[in-house]
Computed example of a mutant assay.
Amino acid sequence: MKPASRLHGRQHPQIWNSAAQLADIPIISTQTLIPAGARPVILAPHPGDEIGACGGLLQLLNNLNRPVLLISVTDGALSHPGSPLWADERLRTQRPHPQESVDALGRLGIATHGLQWVRGGFPEKALAEHEVELAAFIGRHLRPGDVVFGTWRKDGDSDHDTVGRAGALAADEIGAAFNELPVWAWHWPVREQNKIPWHRARKLRLDVWTTARKRHAMYAYASQLNGEPANGIAPLVPRVILDRMGMPYEIVFI
């Protein structure tokens, strides 16, 4: 997830809770988005992005017994520079198998032993420097007919944007469909709503329990939710992110 410091100045109203266009987005079903026989593939730039971007979709697919490939591009090892509480050794313990993500998926009701899960180990905050390599890596794990979900290419975070571009390129070369998931764009000021490709947006409805489990899953990321006021370190995931996760839908750009 993106450091909270990058959200400074982005106060309410934001696009996620103020844009009038949200009410008019066409509804799409899971079965229409991912036809029978197609394999869904989720690209997560950082730990937690698979929950924040599509924790609802993951539950819907699990309910349908659809096998999913999850590709975790980075392990989030650079998320706490200068933190005495989250030193490199502790982060290695928590992230590289990554236990927080295992716990989060479990809270969604997804057993990780039955999940196809690939970890890229790419360097966080420097993905743009490895975009060609990343596209090739993603492509090695795709097959024709897959339906790939990556972060939006214009999401506003360098790593998210890079994963979107690399995922789109890999999918195009292999003959897979590619969809984009906005994450941080929803927290732009509402005056920037004209930058959102509303014509491409589709809405996946989530019931109250699916929404609650998604939010509960995000609380598994203790390393991102708890700041260190004594050390001047803010939470990586600000409260507004959790508020947005209470919305009864997810948006996909098709």
Rank of each mutant, 00 (worst) to 15 (best):
S5R: 15
S5Q: 13
H12F: 03
I15W: 11
W16Y: 14
A19L: 03
A19F: 06
Q21Y: 02
A23H: 01
D24W: 02
S29C: 01
Q31N: 11
I34T: 10
P35N: 09
G37K: 14
A38C: 15
P40R: 12
V41A: 05
L43G: 05
P45V: 12
G48H: 09
D49F: 09
A53C: 07
A53S: 15
G55N: 02
G55Q: 03
G56K: 03
L61H: 11
N62S: 13
N63M: 06
P67S: 06
V68R: 00
S72P: 00
S72N: 14
S72W: 03
D75P: 00
A77M: 15
A77P: 01
L78R: 15
G82H: 11
S83P: 04
P84A: 01
W86T: 01
A87F: 05
E89D: 15
R90N: 03
R95P: 12
R95Y: 02
P96L: 08
P98K: 10
S101Y: 06
D103V: 15
A104K: 06
R107G: 00
G109V: 10
A111P: 01
G114T: 07
G114A: 06
W117D: 02
V118C: 06
G120H: 11
G120A: 10
F122W: 12
P123T: 09
A126S: 08
H130A: 07
H130G: 04
V132W: 04
V132M: 06
V132S: 13
E133Y: 03
A136C: 05
I138D: 05
G139K: 12
G139F: 00
H141C: 05
G145F: 00
W152A: 09
D155T: 12
D155K: 00
D159C: 08
H160C: 05
V163H: 02
R165T: 00
R165W: 01
A166I: 07
A166E: 03
A170P: 07
A171W: 14
E173G: 03
E173M: 07
E173L: 11
G175Y: 09
F178K: 03
N179C: 15
E180W: 11
L181F: 13
L181D: 08
P182R: 02
P182V: 04
W184F: 11
A185Y: 10
A185K: 13
A185G: 12
W188S: 02
P189R: 09
V190W: 07
R191T: 12
Q193M: 05
K195I: 00
W198E: 07
H199E: 14
R200D: 05
A201M: 14
L206Q: 10
T211I: 06
A212H: 12
K214W: 00
M218I: 12
A220Q: 04
Y221F: 14
L225T: 05
N226S: 08
N226M: 13
E228I: 09
N231M: 09
G232N: 07
A234E: 11
V237Y: 10
L242N: 15
L242H: 14
D243G: 08
R244W: 03
R244L: 08
R244I: 03
M245P: 01
G246H: 08
E250L: 08
I251A: 09
F253C: 02
F253R: 05
